[in-house]
Nucleic acid binder design. Sequence first.
RNA 1: GCCGCCAUAGCUCAGUAGGUAGAGCACUCGGCUGUUAACCGAGCGGUCGUCGGUUCAAACCCGACUGACGGCGCCA
Length: 430
Amino acid sequence: MEKIHDILSDKFINSEAEIRGWVYRIRSSGKITFIILRDSSGIIQCVASSDNLNEDQMRELSSMTVESSMEVSGTVRKDDRAITGYELAIKSYKIYERNENFPITKDLGEEFLLDNRHLWIRSREFTSVLKIRSTVFKAFADFFYNNSYYQVQAPMFVSTATEGGSTLFTVDYFGEKVNLTQSSQFYLETLIYSLEKVFTIAPSFRAEKSRTRRHLAEYWHAEGEAAWYSNEDMMKDEEKLIEYIVNEVIKNNSEDLNIIGRDINVLKKIRAPFERIKYRDLIEMANKKFGMDLKYGDDLGADEEYNIMIHFDRPIFVTNYPEELKTFYHKPDPENPGEILCHDMLAPEGYGEVIGGGERIYDLNELLDRLKKNNLNPEDYYWYVDLRKYGSIPHSGFGLGLDRLVTWICGLKNIRDSIPYPRTVRRVKP
RNA sequence: GCCGCCAUAGCUCAGUAGGUAGAGCACUCGGCUGUUAACCGAGCGGUCGUCGGUUCAAACCCGACUGACGGCGCCA
């Protein structure tokens, strides 16, 4: 049994091959039938003609339907008329299941495709996105393993918020109300005291009723935390990480990039280091060079990020946000009062934020002070506060939206198309 | 939560100044030995999202609701 991709080669010409998969396209003109068969590796045209097959077999093959499953064996030959350059002359075959009719045809509506997601993921384009996604997840983990980080796992049921606000899903936990995690950061911070450098890949849940092309209610959150790291140290790892992931995709998925129409040359420009721009300098740049109208203290919304990042062809780091724009645990910058040691990584081509990170406060009183200012009860965060009492050290971390990263790398219009089963405000099926 | 847009055949969409609905694809049958989302002929296929209102008459006008998509805010 061969994989289709393997027999698309001059080495296989005139040799016998046996493949199995699903009918991708079928065309018949009576005495000759073309069945394009697909498996996970690719597609190939299979030809049924009366040279090799009897009348009954010809009739049976000509009435096959899209997505029916079958096994085919025959001789491989080169033919420019075949969609992938080679074809297989069918000598024998076995049908596993002949479909009545496959619901998805050439006309594709958004709602219909979302309702039939379980079938749509078979499409050639989606298959390629899923392969790229697989590379991204593997490359993320590999990069950190190669850089002395340990992989850890944090709980999904939690009792404290990380960010504050009403963005948490509440679930019944043996009669007690608890939340689904929106970030594993605090747990990662506890783990650096034994492992020093840790990372995790886990879902995060946000109950925000966001209706945009870059939000999911359940998304894959890749987070890292490193002892003794400054904000700058963290950015250095992150830019190398992104460069590594993009390189792995270029190396392993060039055919997939081609199938989804993503220009590989755009990705080849993604080389570390990435430019670091202080928030206040970015505001000035946006106003002077890009004709925008921003004030110091404005948060960068989706429009702003788009209008800025459309001018860049590689990611940038935005650092030194004003204190009031970010959450309580960020460490203030001693050299720039009112600003914090943090960074957002914005992806180019208008994609915007994919990473948020920075240095954490490690002084006990400073943390208690910031909790108070944000109207948070230190008792709820007792275990997080404890870290500042027992061998506290400088450290930094980050959170990366893997689905956003895949969306950008694949050049997709909507984050929904980066994940097999997107969970959004209005959709939990299929 | 706010704003916008949409809902007609299994799918994608037309549709008339308000007068009882149409195409392409899919499917079924027939034709064709090199097709490329094949082509040609025929057939099958609809309480025009739901409820209510205006009218002699509503898919079309009005209202509410439901569902879907997009944008903002929030964030990754």
